[in-house]
Design a protein around this nucleic acid. Structure first.
Ligand code: MN
Ligand code: MN
Ligand code: MN
Ligand code: MN
Lengths: 151, 151
DNA sequence: ACGGAAATGTAGCCTGTGCTATATTTCCAA
DNA sequence: TTGGAAATATAGCACAGGCTACATTTCCGT
């Protein structure tokens, strides 16, 4: 993103560990996509429930005003994640649907893992809404293995 | 924050579950403090290492430019988390130090738990940088219990 | 069929968080 | 001691993501 993906480092035998800056830069990058992930997941839910996702419903479920939801949908549109016509519902594109599926899977897995290690379901749901966005593919796989390994 | 803390709900026997909007609103609130948490934690680290935290070091470790770090420090100052004089180092106030301690404890606990369930240490460190901010007190307690309950 | 209510859109404001370019200050080595 | 390099500050731009106020469109009950 900012510097090279993984600077080769002069061959001094030291493994190219992730530096502090790498970690923070990674977290910042994720932060900027987290909102889109929540929107696509929610739009998928609403579409399943009602056949379409209306701006008002999106706004209410997210706890924001509708102008805020409307603006976000414009950004989603610009990114090719949704399509919509004025005064009509919002629908996911293939890319948007793919993101929704991916996020939903992550969401469920995080909740399951939290509950498995003893977190009360209510707290697990609450915390997962933020955590889900920061769980890497590697970590996700580890969660799966852990959850499978205890039937 | 936005509406009441927990609306009592007309006494219909239904337990006042956290609604979707509550979860998203919670996540948004946390998102706005996550940056401060990272700064205070980092300033504590630098102060321990070098006796003070210089803007340049803060910026480098976070992977941002120094004007960005400088502006953030102004906000931290306004919030009473740090003190600093122009062209000098940045120091935590008591409130800032308290936040740093709290965040660092959370950070370590999250990393430990991730590793305990099988996440590779490298990935655990990376993901924890984002996850740490979204782990509630309840979840943290559960992590402690889980980690203690295995030797 | 139509008129008011509900939904949606738009304008415009604010703050946060990033950046580059430039000015100022401090520090250090000759 | 002093001049250039390094560090820090400031100005100003951009965009995200909140909000309120107001305009427009759609929907629905009479
Ligand atoms: Mn979420
Ligand atoms: Mn989610
Ligand atoms: Mn962090
Ligand atoms: Mn941290």
């Amino acid at each position: 993103m900012s510097s090279d993906d993984l600077p080769p480092e002069p061959d001094d035998g030291i493994p190219p560990e992730a530096t502090d800056a790498d970690r923070f830069t990674n977290a910042r990058a994720i932060r900027s996509t987290a909102l889109f992930e929540d929107y696509t997941e929610l739009i998928a839910d609403l579409t399943e429930e009602f056949g379409e996702a209306r701006i008002t419903d999106i706004a209410r479920r997210l706890g924001v005003t509708h102008p805020t939801a409307n603006k976000a949908v414009l950004r989603l549109k610009r990114e090719g994640l949704v399509i919509s016509r004025p005064y009509r519902g919002v629908f996911l594109t293939e890319a948007g649907a793919a993101m929704a599926r991916e996020v939903k899977a992550r969401h469920r897995l995080v909740v399951r893992l939290l509950i498995a290690v003893g977190v009360p379901p209510e707290a697990a749901e609450m915390d997962a809404e933020g955590i889900e966005h920061y769980v890497s593919e590697t970590t996700l796989k580890a969660f799966e293995v852990y959850l499978d390994g205890r039937q």
